[in-house]
Design a protein around this nucleic acid. Structure first.
Ligand code: ZN
Length: 278
DNA sequence: AAGCAAGCCTGATGGC
DNA sequence: TGCCATCAGGCTTGCT
């Protein structure tokens, strides 16, 4: 379940591998990853021969800006959007390496004289791989990014004030804050000691401040975990759970030792301590 | 071995 | 009527 920290990690990788690189060859190994109506041919035509001008992230979206005389002439895409869904992953291999398990797309790139085969892997099809000529509506609609943008507690409180739904559900709305996922929301609400079921409009300004701080802290903590060469997702077999309460239902609350509870909130699993979070 | 988990889109419903 | 916000369901499949 990539959330913002994992996507930020992916951005750094893609930047290293592809910034100012040229895409020499493209292979779509599983066309189901493409949007309906997008053909493999269209993707290959849009990407091959292109130079990568910029790799950006906002929230959980990645955007590669491309430029190449080839596709410019044919009116091709100049943007590649990537969303990791919950199991997506970018890796780089040697140019002649065989396809990996779950490989969906392969981009063979050259940067200087270094050649790499950059692959998008995704066991499921929750991720997106989209070529476009302009920003996607989902990209444009994103709220401020907790890592990049200055977060204004006053503006956020105003936004929350118009929402009656549970605070946790509203935090997951990417137009409110870009990149907050189920884990970061769960963790930040625990540290801010706010009950996830409370109506968003009931959150006082001091609590909003605290919440913002804890969201940033939670993201920073997760980011610090990804020092290795490849992302480890919590759900991957054998991985130990690095989080404070996420995935720890029934275990003692780290603060009061009463058992943590789990419920479904807006369709998402939610762990919390009813005693500490109010 | 059936069911869970994730993010997000869609479509239905509720409310003003 | 129109516009939101909210919510349930579906997508997918490896893992418990
Ligand atoms: Zn507690």
């Amino acid at each position: 379940m990539p959330e913002l920290p994992e996507v930020e990690y992916a951005r750094r990788c893609l930047h290293t591998w592809m910034h100012h690189a040229t895409i020499e060859a493209v292979a779509v190994e599983d066309a189901r990853i493409l949007d309906d109506g997008t053909s493999v041919r269209a993707v290959v035509r849009a990407l091959e021969g292109q130079r990568v001008l910029e790799v950006r992230r906002r929230g959980k979206w990645l955007r590669l800006e491309l430029a190449g005389t080839l596709s410019r002439r044919s009116g091709g895409a100049s943007l590649l959007f990537s969303h990791l869904g919950m199991t997506g992953k970018w890796v780089a291999d040697a140019p002649d390496a065989p396809a990996r398990r779950f490989e969906k797309v392969r981009l063979d790139v050259v940067k200087g004289r270094r050649r790499r085969s950059v692959r998008y892997l995704d066991p499921r099809l929750f991720g997106r791989f989209v070529i476009a000529t302009q920003d996607l509506p989902a990209w444009t609609a994103l709220g401020p990014d907790p890592l990049d943008d200055a977060l204004d507690p006053v503006a956020l409180r105003e936004k929350l004030g118009r929402r009656s739904g549970p605070i946790k559900a509203v935090l997951l709305d990417q137009t409110v804050l870009a990149g907050v996922g189920n884990i970061q929301a769960t963790e930040a609400l625990f540290y801010a000691r706010i009950d996830p079921r409370r109506s968003a409009k009931s959150i006082e300004s001091a609590e909003v401040k605290k919440l913002l701080r804890e969201i940033r802290a939670s993201i920073d903590r997760t980011l610090a975990l990804q020092e290795g060469p490849e992302i480890q997702y919590v759900e991957e077999a054998g991985a130990t759970n690095p989080f404070t309460i996420y995935g720890r239902e029934k275990l003692p609350c780290p603060r009061c030792k009463r058992p943590l509870q789990k419920m479904v909130l807006a369709g998402r699993g939610t762990v919390f301590c009813p005693h500490c979070q109010r």
